[in-house]
Design a protein around this nucleic acid. Sequence first.
DNA 1: TGCTATGGTTCAGGACTTACGAACAATTGA
DNA 2: TCAATTGTTCGTAAGTCCTGAACCATAGCA
Lengths: 130, 130
Amino acid sequence: MRPLLHPSVDDITVEGILHALSDPVRVAIFADIVGSTCSQICSHFLTVRDRPIPKSTLSQHFKALREAGLILSERRGVEMHNSSRCAEIEVRFPGLISTIVKAHAMQLAGRHHGDKRTRKAPDPRIARGR
Amino acid sequence: MRPLLHPSVDDITVEGILHALSDPVRVAIFADIVGSTCSQICSHFLTVRDRPIPKSTLSQHFKALREAGLILSERRGVEMHNSSRCAEIEVRFPGLISTIVKAHAMQLAGRHHGDKRTRKAPDPRIARGR
DNA sequence: TGCTATGGTTCAGGACTTACGAACAATTGA
DNA sequence: TCAATTGTTCGTAAGTCCTGAACCATAGCA
């Protein structure tokens, strides 16, 4: 089992952050971690918003968040404790994380009555041009 | 040639925006469009930050930005004029676009002396665990 | 010392996405 | 009508992502 890799703050990129958070499951996980006061263990997310996530997939999602520099993962016994690196990122990219998390929350809030939209809605209405 | 598809504001998603902007070429293009007062034509971006972009690739990048709801594309004669949809998005996700564009600018500014880092830097320094 | 349970990781495959050259389409101007 | 310009589409090769199966590491208990 190879050691956990965390980029240093200076190696964190905007593209990396955006890519990591462009997945609906990952933003949901990250938003939860950001919103909670204590660190969260991976298995807490075996279901995300009423969908079961296979544990191999979950492991990959955590790896993605970790290597984008968004979370700090620490093994404690058999568990993996995850906390956000918001404070560090805030110094490098002020407001970025909080704005994204807020936008994500707004999107969730605006999703009423069983409107189960999940991923990059290819559902365009306006068509312009020839 | 099929008609251009633009999502309505309500169909724009955070995930879609983040995914579209998680590509270094696309953020660069988008930041340029946001920063300019008049609309930009696609061929203006045949080189982005000193790299040539093949035009088929460029076309796909514009499609991605358009279908994420980030830009409005209008054909005028043989050219395609692109402008940002910031104002609309601002209503739905306040601060999101400006914060991302600003973070992107900071990252560029911090990239001195030939440090050609481009994509999700897999260059980790800190290793924890075990 | 085993044995077992628990929590995560790795591997391998198939599915899906992306990049880009070549061919094509639409418009303009001569 | 022809050529030039600007952008799109198609096909394929390369890359990324998802996930079940197998594995590893630790803890607790007999």
